[in-house]
């Protein structure tokens, strides 16, 4: 399978990365080189093979459903580019 310019632009939008016409053209070539490389996986017979979900068989750790952390709003917003009274500020999303 290979991608065309339109697909690259659509995927870039899905990935929320702005691309110029020139970027998109370059990426089309690069992505096709990588997709060409991974194509060889199709020759592997995987009938009856389960997809890997966990590399080491382990049981999901569970703990008591109690609060063990929190009350650190200032820490959480400390690195944000724009905040106001422990809220993240973003451009207006509802009119």
């Amino acid at each position: 399978m290979s991608v065309d310019l339109q697909t690259v632009k659509r995927v870039a939008h899905l990935a929320r990365i702005a691309v110029s016409e020139e970027d998109a053209e370059r990426m089309t070539g690069e992505l096709n080189a990588i997709l060409g490389f991974v194509e060889q996986l199709n020759e592997v017979d995987v009938s009856g093979v389960e997809p890997m979900t966990s590399v080491t068989p382990m049981e999901m750790k569970k703990r008591q459903d109690v609060v063990t952390d929190g009350s650190k709003a200032t820490d959480i917003v400390a690195n944000a580019p724009a905040t106001d009274e422990n809220f993240f500020l973003v451009p207006k999303v509802v009119e």
Partner: peptide, 15 residues
């Protein structure tokens, strides 16, 4: 299915 699922199955075989 064509990519991710196939790759995870191949991963099972590698292991």
């Amino acid at each position: 299915d064509a990519y991710y699922l196939q790759a995870q199955k191949v991963r099972t075989l590698i292991k």
